[in-house]
Structures are given as structure tokens and as C-alpha cells.
Design a protein around this nucleic acid. Structure first.
Lengths: 189, 189
DNA sequence: GCATTTGCCTAAAGCCTGTAGGAAACCTAC
DNA sequence: GTAGGTTTCCTACAGGCTTTAGGCAAATGC
């Protein structure tokens, strides 16, 4: 019988596609096996199991997002950098909702420190360099940026902010403006 | 054989406890049945199934949170109201992580409009009354508040913001201060 | 060309969901 | 208090997913 050519990478990639198409909950060993026309048991020599698969998607998503954000940030500073930073996350979440969902999975400490997660906070700090904020305010500001953007993206995905006539893009721009102003005044307070 | 006294309410209440203790993923018909020393099949005359159970927890959480926030807000305004509003959510999420998780489940439109979800945005608008912000900025501000607090709570739950020596409570206070300032200037811009 | 390694298979046990139909407990009302 | 009806929980079962164990065939290397 012909071999399917399974590898951890290919399995995780398929899991990521599946997550984007059907949601992270649909990412199962069974479903991924089906994509390769292979029995579910065959996956277990390549990956640890369903949890492993989802963690793999999470790590992939963190890497891809960090890459995108880094590229978006190149050569920009100030409000420009802020918008690029935020936009990169928002665009990624829209294009890859399942991967974005996976990126919020809790990782054990060891996996987390080895992940691209650390690059994300470095990138946030890079944005803040344009605002001249010293510690510990810089750490507070990193947390604020993470909170606002993750919160916005997650609420937008859940509800689409569709209960009022006010456009979501308008709220996004308004938020960026206000954050920019907030961070500018941040160097004073 | 003695009857267990199952009702949709009691089942949802047990599901909520289970969610807080073990996470929303552990909320299954099977697990809830075990709590009542009853076979899983017995649940199906009271609830639709596992999804129903989780949705029930979501609706319960939305109600409980709205009640708490409303109480926290009573008699306060300005930065005081802002802190009470945010604190009520954060405290609830810490006490009831599983319920909080459930509250973010996507609900179909019909269920959503009948839920306590609408009270939440009304409460946010009540906070903003202390800041004198007109439409459409008020809607933008409601979304900002939702984003910041939900984002912060969710990141705090995931990582505990434990990778740096800076205290999470300090970042929370800093964030409240900055938001208060932002909203104050909001009436101008 | 043969031995070894690797990859995918079948088999099977365990748990979860959800449906169907049965029997016991409860309620009502005579 | 007891007969009828209803409700509640049960057993049985079908189907799906997970994961382990052991086997045969394909690829690889000498």
C-alpha cells in the first residue's frame, strides 16, 4: 500500500487548515487522519495525540503572527507602528480564525518560553520605543496593548459588534487614535 | 429507585460548578450525570445535550456578571464607577473562571438578544455617563472598555503576566488610570 | 539481493453522545 | 387507598473519537 508521507509538520499544517475552516474544536486526530486518507491510529507514531496537534497549531500561529508583525513594523514608528502592529494581529485573526484561537491555548511554561510568544512582547516593546516610556510603565503599556488588541479581536470575532449601526472599522480607528494619545501622554505621567 | 430530582436549572448549576473546577471542556453530559449519580442518558429529557449545558452556563454567567456589575456600580460615578465596573468583571472571572470562559461562547442571534448580554452594554454606557461622551464616540468607548477588560482578564488568566517581575495588580491600576484620563479627554476629541 | 528500519494497517478497549423503549415512582382524583 | 396517567430514570444500543499493541509491507542501506 502506498504511503501517505505523514510528518509532524504536515499533520500540524493540515490541523491548522482544519482549524481555520471549522474551528479549533474540530481539530481531532480522527479528522486530520481523514484529510490524509489514513486511519487515525497511524498518526500516533508522528504526534502525541489530539492535544499535541492543537499545541502544534498554537506554536505555528505564534510564529506566523510574530513574523507578520515584525514585517509590518519594519521601518515604522509612532502611531504608524502602532497601527501596523495592531493591524497585523487583526488581519491574521480574520484570515486564520482557527489558528488565532489556538494561539490562546494555555501552554506549559517550558513550551511557552521556547515559543514565539516571547517575540510578541519584544515587538510590543519595539512599538513603545516610539513613545519613550520607561519601566515599569513600559511593562504596563505592553500589557495594555496586548489586552486591547486581543480583547477587540476576540469580541469582534464573537459578535462582529453587529448589534449597533456603528461600524467596527470606525471603532478600531478611534481606538488606535486614543491609544496613540494615551501613550504619548504616558511619558509625562 | 429514588429519584435524583433533575431539573434544567440544577443541571446547569452543576455544570457551572464543574466548569469552574475543571474548565469548560470538562463540562459534558457524562460528567454532569456523574455528579448526580445518574446515567448520562437520563439527562436528555431535561436538556438538549452537551452544547445546551454549556450554553446554559454561558447564560447563567452573563446574568450573574450583570447583577454583580450593576450592584458594584450603584451610587458611583467617574473613575470610581470605572474601577467598580472593571473590578466586578475581574473578580468574577477569578472566582468563576469556567463560567467566565463560558460567557464568551458564541450564541445564536436569538439567544444572544434574549440574554443578559444586552445589560452589559447598558452598564458600560452607565459608566460612560460620568464622562459626557456623545455618539458615535460613546459606542466606540463601550467597545474599548469591553476590549480592554476582557483582553486583560483573558491574558491574565492564561499567563498570569508572570514572565516579568512587574505586578499584575499594578498594571491593572495603571490601566484604569490611563483609561480614566483617556475618557476624560474623550469629550473634547 | 537481503536485512533493517520505517510507515501504515487491523484489532481492540475505553469513554462519550444521543435515541428508543421499559419499569418504577409520583400525582391526581375519585 | 387505590386506579390511571404522567414523569423520571433505567437498560440497551449504535456510532464516533482516542489511544495502545502488534503485524505486514514498503523504503532504505549495505
Amino acid at each position: 500500500m502506498a504511503r501517505a508521507g505523514l510528518t509532524p509538520q504536515r499533520l500540524v499544517a493540515a490541523a491548522a487548515e482544519l482549524a481555520d475552516e471549522a474551528g479549533l474544536a474540530q481539530v481531532t486526530a480522527s479528522a486530520v487522519a481523514r484529510r490524509f486518507d489514513v486511519k487515525a491510529a497511524s498518526l500516533y507514531s508522528h504526534i502525541g495525540g489530539t492535544d499535541d496537534l492543537r499545541t502544534g497549531v498554537a506554536l505555528l500561529a505564534l510564529r506566523e503572527m510574530a513574523d507578520r508583525v515584525a514585517e509590518a513594523l519594519a521601518g515604522r514608528s509612532g502611531r504608524d507602528a502602532l497601527a501596523a502592529f495592531a493591524g497585523a494581529y487583526r488581519d491574521y485573526a480574520r484570515e486564520h480564525p482557527g489558528r488565532y484561537e489556538a494561539a490562546r491555548l494555555p501552554l506549559d511554561h517550558e513550551t511557552a518560553v521556547a515559543s514565539a510568544g516571547v517575540r510578541h512582547s519584544q515587538l510590543a516593546r519595539a512599538v513603545l520605543r516610539g513613545y519613550d516610556i520607561a519601566e515599569p510603565d513600559q511593562t504596563h503599556a505592553v500589557r495594555l496593548l496586548g489586552s486591547v488588541f486581543h480583547g477587540y479581536i476576540s469580541l469582534e470575532a464573537a459578535t462582529g459588534f453587529s448589534h449597533t449601526p456603528v461600524d467596527s472599522d470606525a471603532s478600531w480607528q478611534w481606538t488606535l487614535d486614543r491609544l496613540d494619545a494615551l501613550l504619548r501622554s504616558g511619558s509625562i505621567g
